[in-house]
Amino acid sequence: MEEWFEESFRELRRELRRLMREVEKFFEPVVDAERGEVEPLYEVIDAGDRILVRVDLPKVDKESVEVSVIGNKLVVKASMREPLRLCDLPYYARCEVTGYKLELEMPLDIDTEKIQATFRSGYLEITLPRKKAYRVKVE
């Protein structure tokens, strides 16, 4: 019973955090006009012993994909092979979209030394293994 309650509460917190992120995002520009970067579509999957981050990066070659860990953030950057030209749309008329940038805050228990990334057909998959719990011997 307790476990069910805790899981429901965790789910509620996740949903609230998601809603808050969406509210914050509403006020952010869709394109970073200076850098020509947009946030790509992505999903985060909690697979128990690891977290999977999948990112949709169309018009990108593997060589231009950068995955970095900066502090507690996972940062993905990629440049498009050629800019996305949407100049007929007034919102994009004065800027070209030339790349992607994604920043995600990582949970504290990620083993950052063992992060792996694969890229195939424009889809990036990043595996973030969780650190294993261990007991400390009490002297």
Binding site: L41, P58, G122
Partner: peptide, 14 residues
């Protein structure tokens, strides 16, 4: 046109 379509329809998907 697959990659171009994926890139252009990002916001529509959201």
């Amino acid at each position: 046109q697959e990659e171009e379509i994926r890139a252009r329809l990002r916001e529509t998907m959201k």
